[in-house]
Write a protein that binds this DNA or RNA. Structure first.
Lengths: 210, 210
DNA sequence: CATCTTTTGTTGCAATTGCAACTAATTTTT
DNA sequence: AAAAATTAGTTGCAATTGCAACAAAAGATG
């Protein structure tokens, strides 16, 4: 994420200067927030990674979104009519900035520098979020597991600028992220190997095509 | 879309007051814009509806996104590494506002009222976009055609506040939007009817459950 | 370091989905 | 109003995917 401003540095400098902005730490598997009508809160992930997960009535777990450094998340981004329960779960140690606002468009009442700067930063963070979401939709609309995997690998590869990379997910989570059955995905991974498209050792992938 | 500001009215009042903002009209099936590195342009749909479509190498057409009044779209929302060609196609008569900026965070050089107001409006428009994208992801991550259809119907229903509604899509387009095979979707629709979950006359759906 | 838990890897089988190839109905164009 | 084009609706069959149920490996925990 190429944010043109060192948010973490900024947060550390101004910490606790505004009542409505709070930094909290979380450890692995803790629930950072659940999406149940706390609609005037917005979270920024300052460190670590976290997943937005949904459990449907059949017990299927879906990784609706995956957050890493400087990702923005929160109930604001969801429609009120969403009928599934969504949780943000820490994948490891996380630092999260909770940003409470009265009206997302208006400045903090106390008009503090902290709030003001964050508000100015928001459009960029949200725009960044939009590109991520669109990327994800591009993956999800692919018609086969193979296309999803290859599409995903291509993205990672073009972001790392290398044909060899480690997956930021466990394979179990990757399946949940691509919204496919894990064993079916494993099978497809094996076929991709057999067909000579990829090499795979542990969670390190090497693309052999192009 | 509940935008707390009458954009269209505003545009009409200030039209042509800034060189970098232009309104254009389109008729059915015209390409409004294609996503090929015109990254400093942003479009707002003032009237009509349009689809963002992708054609992959196998000729599959996917409706990547569907835009209606006051939706924002453009290359900015996509990563540079997107390797498919994306087109925005008018579904009927459309009015589109093209908004050219040097830096999305900075004001227009001439500092005109028009640009300024639009810039202030942007976060809201983009936030609105995020909720739409998340809604779409929620649909796409459903594991079966039936779940996708039901999820989609529920959304429409809760937006219209009625159990009876007309689809904003042709069935062909709906299949492309849900990213499933059309005939398989038709089959599932028939099953939903047979199982007494829905009623369907033309493109009007009535939900019979709950 | 022994145990418990999670993740990975595999497979047969069933269910779902996609594909192809139609016909019918509707809409658009000339 | 006839012809052309698009959309809706069907169906058999093949391919893909999901499910269940494992064993093996790796990682976490006391």
């Amino acid at each position: 994420m190429n944010i043109s401003f060192d948010i973490k540095q900024f947060v550390e400098t101004f910490e606790n200067s505004c009542q409505k902005v709070k930094k909290k730490s979380f450890s692995k598997n803790q629930v950072i927030t659940s999406y149940i009508e706390k609609r005037n809160q917005l979270c920024i992930l300052l460190d670590g990674s976290a997943d937005l997960v949904r459990y449907d009535l059949n017990g299927n777990r879906t990784i609706v979104d995956h957050f890493s450094k400087y990702d923005v998340f929160g109930e604001v981004f969801y429609m009120v009519s969403t009928n599934n329960e969504l949780f943000v779960e820490a994948k490891g140690k996380c630092e999260v900035l909770f940003y409470i606002y009265d009206d997302i468009k208006k400045k903090c009442k106390t008009n503090c520098k902290f709030h003001e700067t964050l508000t100015e930063l928001l459009p960029e963070l949200i725009l960044n979020k939009v590109t991520n979401l669109n990327m994800r939709i591009e993956l999800l609309t692919k018609r086969s597991i193979r296309d999803k995997l290859v599409g995903y690998f291509n993205l990672i590869s073009s972001m790392c600028l290398t044909k060899s990379f480690s997956l930021p997910f466990s394979l179990t989570d990757l399946a949940d992220y691509l919204s496919v059955d894990r064993s079916a995905m494993m099978r497809e991974l094996k076929l991709l190997k057999e067909d000579g498209f990829i090499e795979k050792t542990g969670n390190k992938i090497t693309l052999l095509y192009k």
